[in-house]
Amino acid sequence: MADGSSMAISFAPPRRIVRHGSMHRLMRHRSTVALLMCSPLFLLIAGLVVYPAIYAIYLSMLNKNMTEFVGLHNFAFLLKRDTFRLVIFQSCLFAVSAVVLKAFIGFVLAHLMHNIPSGRQRIWRGLLLVPWVIPLALSTLCWWWLFDPSYSAFNYALNVFGFPSVAWLGEAWPARLCMIAVNVWFGTPFFMIMYLAALKSVPEQLYEAAAIDGAGAIQKMLFVTLPMMRNIISITVLFSLIVTFANFDIVRILTNGGPESKTHVFATYAFQVGIQSGNIPLGASVSLFMFPLLAVFAFFVLRNVNRRTKEIAA
């Protein structure tokens, strides 16, 4: 992962060096080779993602006993339920704020890291990557111990300094913030490492040129760093948003949706109605609820990334 930013340039259009005679055959040949090289990927995706995905969408359009096709009825039904509206709000709050915070802190960390000499970066990077390396279910378990209301290590620390205990997971807002905090803690290192790679790939000449033009630190950031990192920021934010919207472990382990369903997110709610209460189609509908919105968002983000890539390549 020496150079994450390079993803930005990944869509360079095929460079046609020679365009006549026997080279044509070579081109065709090259496409064939390329297709062959991609075929394992496509096979894997077709068999293990596309088919299951279509099946899942079909599943979400059945009635409870899976005997009848009901179209979008499950979605309409969900939208009418107060509990589910709460779930939408909480999922959006969780995913959006967690991603924004992760991106911001990751950005800051990447800059701090970029400031120190490269020789020393290794150890700091290693330390900061620890949260990302521990399996999420495991570390969430540890957070749960830390928050655990009857014997919370955080509360113990608060009490030592004379502050009253906090019911971390016992009230809606503290519990929601705890969930977000755990997700940010887990996901920030990923952003940091991606942004650091991007920073390193910004040509030093650009900064020098900016400096000659009299640009200060803020201007360098606004007119050099950010534009150069736009693609990587888009991609990481998009990817993280999708993954965070699907997060299950954190909420399941910390609160299981409580208190009063005020911390449920799509995945945990889907588990409750789909698997536990035996209504698999409804559970599938819950899981797929964000699909159209995220798909549209992803489409535009990726289109912009492609466009910028072409501009750079041109």
């Binding site: 869509f11 991609c38 990927l41 990817f239 993954v243 699907a246 492609n306």
Partner: peptide
């Protein structure tokens, strides 16, 4: 190839939890 590359990325839109039955 460009469309395909985008498509590869979009596979993440289906939550893993939903893939397990199929």
């Amino acid at each position: 190839s460009q469309t395909l590359a985008t498509g590869v990325f979009l596979t993440y839109l289906i939550p893993n939890s939903l893939l397990f039955i199929p």
